[in-house]
Amino acid sequence: MHLENALFYYSPITDRPPLRWPDGKRVAVYVGLNVEHFLLDRPSTSIWPGTADLVPDALNYGWRDYGPRVGVWRITEILDRHGVRASVLLNSDVVHHNPQIIKAGLERDWAWLAHGQTNSILQAAMDEDQERAMLTRVVDTIAGATGRRPRGWMGPGLTETFNTPALLAELGVTYVLDWTNDDQPYPLNVPGMLSVPYTVELNDLGLFARGTSGQEFVQIVKDQHEQLSADSEHGGRVMALALHPFVTGQAFRAKYLDQALAHLAAQPDTWLTTSDDIADHYRRTVQEHH
């Protein structure tokens, strides 16, 4: 007995009605900025597996903790320089532990997406009632701190249960980033719910863990934009750039993020936007007319 995917149907990108971005732009670009909180006594993303099972694990915890203390501020400065509003993938625990980051984001009108409570606890293995209570707490916490309810979701580690999209819809969330399988938004088989493109490929965590250099990162960003721009002759495309402050926020990588964003900002066919605005535009122009 094999499980078939009931959340969405197969839809080849060649068979869809054309997607048009505002002002004739071809590629909608957003920066998915992972702003996360990690628990001291749980393993999570690690730079060195040798100590990952220790409590406390000063090496890996400290590496991750560079993000809220230093890295996010360096990235914020670069985003500001290029007029980029972040789409923040926010662990709700950040509200309690790093309120200065929330304040800085509010001053910049960043978009806030719910990203679970902490990246030390994945979404799987909860029953429906547990998950509903947790998601409600996450969404309410973010809404209370930012003044608006998050419209987007990405699970910690891109994890969901079979109930997650429907439970999110109950809470007024209208799109998820977890299914990184497309260059355009598409509807899920949950009323009112979209999938919006995110990326595990154009993602600093994966790229730099594999030894990608700063110069190679800039070239990868350019190559991604160039191909999506060519593809968009047949309908607009989405380019997500996924960043983690403890990775790209490192001093020796900062100038390469600066160069990558300078390139994207200089492209006349690029709509530098947020995942919220991408979802809204798709809903308004594609879903309502088909």
Rank of each mutant, 00 (worst) to 15 (best):
S229T: 10
V95M: 06
Q215L: 12
D276L: 01
H115V: 10
L264H: 10
R26N: 06
E160Q: 13
D269R: 03
L205R: 08
E77I: 06
D129C: 11
G236A: 03
G206A: 13
G214E: 01
V218F: 07
E233H: 13
P156K: 03
L257I: 11
A145P: 00
N60D: 08
V35S: 09
T164Y: 06
D127Y: 11
A265R: 14
R149W: 00
F208C: 08
R132I: 06
N98W: 15
R151K: 15
D276S: 03
H115W: 08
P150A: 14
G116I: 01
G157L: 00
D223R: 15
L106N: 03
Q130G: 09
Y198T: 02
P156L: 06
A266T: 01
W63I: 02
Y10W: 03
W48R: 09
F8W: 13
T164F: 04
T285I: 03
D109S: 13
R16Y: 01
T180N: 13
I101M: 04
W271S: 04
R284V: 09
E201C: 11
I102C: 04
V139E: 02
Y186K: 07
T141V: 10
R81A: 14
D231Q: 14
L202H: 06
G192A: 12
L113D: 12
P156H: 07
L113T: 09
P17W: 04
D182Y: 14
A58P: 00
P43T: 12
K255P: 02
Y10K: 05
N163I: 02
L3N: 11
E170K: 09
L168G: 08
S195K: 11
R16N: 11
M1F: 02
A262Y: 05
V84Q: 07
T14F: 03
G105C: 05
N91I: 01
A265Y: 09
D258F: 04
S11W: 08
E216G: 14
